[in-house]
Structures are given as structure tokens and as C-alpha cells.
Computed example of a mutant assay.
Amino acid sequence: MRPQDILPDHQNDVQVNGVTVRKGSVGAFLASVRDWQDPASNDATRAAAEADLRALLPGLHALGLFRVLAARDPALQDLIEGVA
């Protein structure tokens, strides 16, 4: 399976189980995790990153990402599971 088989170049989002998932969601999640975990990030950056992570989670859950991947960071895994 190739990326264009899932989401062609001309398409920017996909509906999965009634949730709209935008192209770039996984990349945005990873970038936000880096900001959220970076000890050099200030409180405002960390809070913005967490808000972005929470906004991305429904789409990533709909894609099934966390059925095959788990976070090594317990705090991130709690956030993913909705515990945090």
C-alpha cells in the first residue's frame, strides 16, 4: 500500500468512521509531541502542543494508529488513552 492509495495528491482529507482526518495529521502529531516533551519548551508552548495533540487524537484513533503503536512515554500514553 502506498500513501497515494489511501489519500491521493489532490485530496486533503478522508472520512473514517465519521471523523474527518486531514492529510498531515500524523506529522502534526509527531511535531506536537516533540514540543510537548521538550524540556526547553515554555509553559505556553507546551500547553499549545497539548491542545493540538488532543485535537488530533480522534482522527488518529479513527485511523487505528494506536491499535498498532504505543507511546514509550507513560504521560503521552495516558494522553492518548484519554487518562490525562
Rank of each mutant, 00 (worst) to 15 (best):
A55F: 08
R54A: 06
V26I: 15
R34K: 15
Q37H: 10
R67H: 12
L57H: 01
R72G: 10
D43Q: 12
R72P: 00
L7E: 01
A49F: 01
Q4N: 11
G27S: 06
L65C: 07
R67F: 04
Q4D: 10
A48T: 08
V33E: 00
N12K: 12
L57M: 09
L57R: 01
D5P: 08
D35Y: 14
L30R: 15
M1C: 10
L60F: 00
H61K: 11
A48P: 00
V14S: 05
F66Q: 05
V14G: 03
E50M: 13
S32L: 04
L76H: 04
L69K: 11
D13G: 04
L65N: 01
M1Q: 13
Q37S: 07
P3W: 14
L69T: 06
V83G: 08
S25C: 02
E81F: 05
K23E: 07
P58Y: 08
R46D: 00
P8H: 04
L57N: 02
V16C: 03
P58V: 07
G27Y: 07
Q15W: 12
D35K: 08
Q4V: 09
D13C: 09
P8D: 06
D43P: 00
V16D: 02
P39K: 10
A48I: 09
L76F: 11
A47F: 03
I6P: 06
V68M: 03
F66W: 14
P8E: 14
A28E: 06
V68P: 06
H10T: 10
H10D: 15
S41Q: 02
A84D: 15
A48R: 08
D78C: 09
D38F: 00
Q15T: 13
D35H: 14
H61Y: 10
E50I: 06
E50N: 15
D35M: 07
R54G: 03
V33A: 03
L7S: 04
D35I: 08
V33S: 07
R72T: 07
K23W: 11
Q4A: 15
A70C: 10
S32T: 10
L53S: 02
D52W: 02
G18I: 12
E50F: 03
P58D: 13
D35S: 11
Q15I: 12
Q4Y: 07
V83D: 11
D9F: 15
A40F: 06
Q77D: 11
R22K: 09
D73G: 05
V14F: 10
A48N: 06
A40L: 06
Q77W: 02
A84L: 15
D73H: 05
P8S: 04
D43F: 03
R46A: 07
L56W: 01
T20I: 06
S32Y: 03
P39T: 05
H10N: 10
L53Y: 03
A40V: 05
A49P: 02
H61M: 04
L79V: 06
S32F: 01
A84K: 14
N17I: 02
R22I: 05
F29L: 09
D5G: 08
A47K: 15
L7F: 13
R54P: 00
F66M: 04
A40Y: 13
G64M: 07
L53C: 06
V19Q: 13
T20P: 01
G64F: 02
A31P: 01
V19L: 09
A47L: 09
D13Q: 14
V21S: 03
V21D: 02
A62D: 14
W36S: 02
V19P: 01
A71K: 00
L57W: 00
V83M: 12
E50P: 10
G59W: 03
